[in-house]
Simulated assay, not measured.
Amino acid sequence: MQEKLIIQSVLSVGLLIVYSIAKFLTRRYTEKFATSRKFKKGRAADTAKIINSTFLIVSLIILGFIWNITFEGLAIYFASFFTVAGIALFASWSILSNITASAVLFFSFPHRIGSKIRIIDGDNTVEGSIVDMTLFSLHIEVEKKKIVFYPNNLAVQKPIMEIMD
């Protein structure tokens, strides 16, 4: 029994070390990526938080397996949690999709702040200059001092053209 406790403790410490290294490398890589693409530091920090949150959830699940946490006694709590989480996710699906789209745009979006773009969306086509890119939306200046907040999840789905002057 004592030997099993030592093994679990060593695995837990190892997992903590791996999680810390992954967190550090994620922040470093996103900052380096943001610098190379001339993005704002805030975008890099937001993207790193999204990725590190995923690492945390996976690490907690692995920790549960290391310590043989039985789910039989936790069934009522899990059922309650997933019911509330399901309702919350359904109510805020657009928020989650915008956050996910923000991470996708961070790594694959070829346009920068200052780029003139046209988002082709039928009757709702938007044309202007990107003034900011946040966790939830692109801020596009369509006229002097008139800004459209275009959701990230729609920006991922719609064709975007860069307008060359």
Results as ranks from 00 to 15, higher is better:
residue 96 L to G: 12
residue 16 L to H: 05
residue 29 Y to A: 12
residue 39 F to I: 05
residue 45 A to G: 11
residue 17 I to A: 11
residue 147 I to M: 02
residue 90 F to M: 11
residue 92 S to M: 06
residue 116 K to H: 13
residue 100 T to E: 04
residue 72 E to S: 14
residue 149 F to Y: 14
residue 10 V to G: 01
residue 25 L to Y: 09
residue 6 I to H: 01
residue 114 G to C: 03
residue 152 N to Y: 07
residue 120 I to C: 06
residue 138 L to V: 05
residue 12 S to V: 01
residue 149 F to C: 11
residue 152 N to G: 06
residue 155 A to D: 00
residue 149 F to G: 13
residue 156 V to C: 11
residue 21 I to S: 07
residue 85 A to F: 14
residue 120 I to S: 07
residue 116 K to N: 14
residue 134 T to D: 09
residue 45 A to K: 05
residue 55 F to P: 01
residue 57 I to P: 05
residue 4 K to A: 15
residue 155 A to S: 03
residue 52 N to M: 06
residue 75 A to W: 07
residue 8 Q to C: 05
residue 90 F to D: 05
residue 75 A to H: 09
residue 31 E to Q: 12
residue 65 F to P: 00
residue 65 F to S: 09
residue 19 Y to W: 15
residue 57 I to G: 13
residue 48 A to K: 01
residue 21 I to A: 12
residue 38 K to E: 14
residue 72 E to G: 12
residue 124 N to F: 14
residue 89 L to R: 04
residue 91 A to S: 12
residue 41 K to P: 08
residue 84 V to N: 04
residue 34 A to V: 09
residue 59 S to E: 12
residue 13 V to N: 06
residue 112 R to V: 01
residue 37 R to L: 12
residue 55 F to L: 04
residue 40 K to G: 12
residue 28 R to H: 11
residue 105 L to T: 00
residue 126 V to D: 03
residue 141 E to H: 04
residue 52 N to A: 03
residue 101 A to P: 03
residue 76 I to C: 09
residue 60 L to E: 09
residue 155 A to T: 01
residue 117 I to K: 00
residue 122 G to D: 10
residue 69 I to S: 06
residue 146 K to R: 10
residue 18 V to I: 12
residue 97 S to M: 08
residue 75 A to C: 07
residue 20 S to R: 10
residue 109 F to K: 00
residue 8 Q to D: 10
residue 165 D to E: 15
residue 31 E to L: 07
residue 27 R to H: 13
residue 16 L to M: 14
residue 97 S to N: 10
residue 97 S to I: 02
residue 70 T to I: 05
